[in-house]
């Protein structure tokens, strides 16, 4: 066979691979949305799941739990992640401790999420005595999300041009002031984009939550906003299943009459949420960048 023909065939094969992958994605998203849209309506988004026998109802509490857990996780992760990222980008000197932190980041970010969930079960659920609770779930998700967050902040900070930092230091302001007033604002678009993408990952996580936040959702009363009350949606010590956990649970137990419908609708909600997170992250990053650069010119 001559070389040109082989080259043609190879090119065709590469095109086929690309079309296959894009096709898989379109098929996947199309299937999920098509199946989901038939189920999703206002009632599905707001109502609690119906009884086991009759089915019906929706995923209102689960949807709320997903968002609330995300907020709790981010409340813990963002300050710690900023601190860790700043340290790694600005203060860390090459040495044993820095090396150890780097290794920790690497190992923690490649741990299977089920292992993180089991660690959460051991420490945040059993050892603290909180039982299955939102706060245990949020801490487990922190274990899972923090290394990513530190990396995002570090990368965003090191991407700031060196000249900006040098100019700030040359003006006589201190290192810490340089970090707060010059480097962080300049790194903000990258940090924000990365954080929202990480949030999307947290939003769909289930394996780390099954044994920490629990798989059940007791009745919650959406008129009671006192965080100390056991039926309040804001109470961080109540067990709560999220959307992703709920999908797994209705499928695994398969006692619920309308498991397939619930799972279709919830999957579509999850995918829509992840797509929105993706688009929003990009848009917000660009928006902040535009605002910062234009305001600094003025």
């Amino acid at each position: 066979m001559n070389a040109k023909l082989v080259d043609r065939i190879a090119t065709v094969v590469f095109y086929l691979i690309t079309f296959l992958i894009v096709g898989i994605l379109i098929g996947l998203i199309g299937f999920i949305l098509y199946r989901g849209v038939q189920v999703i309506d206002w009632e599905f988004i707001t109502e609690a799941p119906g009884s086991l026998l009759t089915g019906g109802g929706g995923v209102g509490p689960q949807l709320f739990n997903s968002f609330y857990l995300l907020v709790l996780t981010m409340l813990i992760t963002i300050p710690l992640g900023l601190g860790g990222g700043i340290y790694m980008a600005e203060y860390a000197k090459p040495g044993r401790i820095t090396q150890m932190i780097r290794t920790s980041i690497e190992v923690l970010s490649s741990l299977p999420s089920i292992v993180v969930g089991l660690f959460g079960l051991l420490v945040f659920v059993q050892y603290t005595g909180w039982g299955f609770s939102l706060i245990a779930g949020a801490l487990a998700l922190t274990v899972f999300n923090l290394p990513l967050m530190v990396r995002i902040v570090e990368q965003a900070l090191t991407a700031v041009p060196r000249e900006q930092k040098e100019a700030a230091l040359a003006l006589g302001i201190t290192h810490w002031q340089t970090i707060l007033r010059v480097l962080l604002p300049a790194a903000l678009p990258g940090i924000v984009t990365g954080t929202i993408l990480a949030a999307g990952r947290v939003f769909g996580e289930a394996a780390a939550l099954m044994f920490t936040a629990g798989m059940t959702s007791p009745m919650i009363d959406f008129t009671d906003w006192n965080p100390a009350s056991p039926t309040s949606p804001l109470n961080p010590f109540r067990p709560a299943s999220t959307l992703a956990v709920h999908i797994w649970k209705v499928n695994a137990e398969s006692i619920v009459a309308d498991a397939k419908e619930v799972a279709s609708g919830a999957s579509a909600l999850l995918v829509i949420a992840v797509l929105i997170f993706n688009l929003f992250a990009r848009w917000l990053g660009r928006f902040i960048h535009a605002r910062l650069t234009s305001s600094s010119k003025a």
Binding site: G83, S104, I105, L122, V143, P147, V150, H175
Partner: peptide, 28 residues
């Protein structure tokens, strides 16, 4: 003082990672 506080604060947050990893390894 703020300089030192900032340094300590960020150092502690990066130590959290080491603490988490080691407690995870030990517990499991």
């Amino acid at each position: 003082q703020t300089e030192r506080r900032g340094r300590i604060l960020t150092f502690v947050s990066s130590w959290v990672l080491i603490v988490i990893l080691f407690s995870l390894l030990i517990f499991i």
